[in-house]
Design a protein around this nucleic acid. Structure first.
Length: 323
DNA sequence: AACTCGGGGCG
DNA sequence: CGCCCAGAGTT
């Protein structure tokens, strides 16, 4: 009885949901968009303090549009995937220039924003504007796979299949059916929360699950304890990776206003490197090139800086280019 | 379809 | 130390 699943998860959410700040009723669509960017591949607990500071400093798209990428990258702090920070500011610019400073509500306009994919577009439409869009993230994928399909592991992410599996459980409401629309919106938040708190990837807490008795996976005999898990594509080790070196370089530049000369930046980025210093230098050059290609750092007159953080034009008699 | 892209938290 | 996380863009 799939109708039971939706309503019971919605009921459970009403009493068990975490009080996450971006769910407050007064949060603007812009605040929702900011939260969705920060939450891409990043846990809610880590996002919370940065989200608060961010929306307080830049409460409207126009505010962020007039900031610099360097400002945004510093506010982003160590949230990871710093491209998201630049995409978010680019979103603000588009929203100001093409949408009158108002976050759009329709799927096509949202998808046209940089860094907004199927998930983020659906989430903003639903959470900010109450639209019954199919919000399918890794949590929802797993909850539907287990409770409705009966599989231990979710299917591989796919926009087409995500939509199909979702609609099999939550049909698109007919126009004007406000009750069905509200139910779909409530499910969108509730299913994600169930996946985050109860129907977790490795150690699901079926004993406290509100739909355990209707779960197709349990009916088949879900294991107790830890789920073995389908072998995923292994993420390369972070230690010793280009990603780690990119992170180090950006950390140095976030702390150093106005940027640094090549030699000073390399020295600081490699300061923490261990015995394989030669390999680290190779990684450094590759990481710096990648950051420049991504627009996360800029080079002007021999200095490396965060974009928008370039040093002031040299005044007559001032010091040399390297520090 | 497979890669790349941060960083931290947790078992 | 390995796995996972409110994904998206590129190749």
């Amino acid at each position: 009885m799939t109708a039971g699943i939706v309503d019971r998860v919605v009921d459970w959410f009403a009493r068990a949901a975490r009080p996450l700040p971006w769910r407050d009723a007064h949060v603007t669509p812009w605040g929702v968009l900011v939260s969705e960017f920060m939450l891409q591949q990043t846990q809610a607990a880590r996002v919370e303090p940065r989200w608060r500071a961010f929306v307080e400093r830049w409460p409207r798209p126009a505010d962020l549009a007039s900031a610099t990428d360097a400002d945004v990258l510093r506010a982003w702090d160590r949230l990871g995937y710093p491209r998201r920070a630049r995409w978010l500011r680019a979103c603000a610019v588009v929203i100001v220039e093409r949408h009158g400073g108002v976050v759009p509500a329709d799927d096509a306009s949202l998808r046209a924003l940089p860094g907004v994919g199927p998930y983020t577009a659906a989430a903003v439409a639903s959470f900010a504007y109450g639209r019954p869009s199919a919000v399918v993230d890794t949590n929802v994928r797993r909850v539907i796979a287990r409770a409705a399909v009966g599989a231990a592991e979710p299917w591989a992410p796919s926009a087409a299949r995500d939509e199909a599996e979702y609609r099999a459980l939550v049909p698109l409401p007919l126009p004007g059916d406000d009750a069905a629309r509200a139910r779909a919106v409530a499910w969108n938040a509730a299913a994600m929360e169930l996946g985050a708190l109860v129907c977790t990837a490795r150690a699901p807490r079926c004993e406290v699950c509100p739909i355990a008795d209707e779960c197709a996976w349990r009916a088949i005999g879900a294991p107790t304890g830890t789920v073995a898990g389908r072998p995923r594509r292994k993420q390369a080790a972070y230690a010793g990776s280009d990603r780690q070196m990119r992170g180090r370089i950006l950390a140095v530049l976030r702390a150093e206003f106005g940027g640094l000369g090549h030699a000073a930046l390399r020295e600081r980025a490699l300061a923490a490197s261990g015995r394989d210093a030669r390999a680290d230098e190779v990684r450094y050059e590759r990481a710096l090139r990648g950051l420049r290609d991504d627009g996360l750092v800029v080079e002007t007159s021999g200095r490396i800086a965060l974009p928008g953080d370039e040093p002031p034009a040299p005044t007559r008699g001032a010091g040399g280019p390297d520090s």
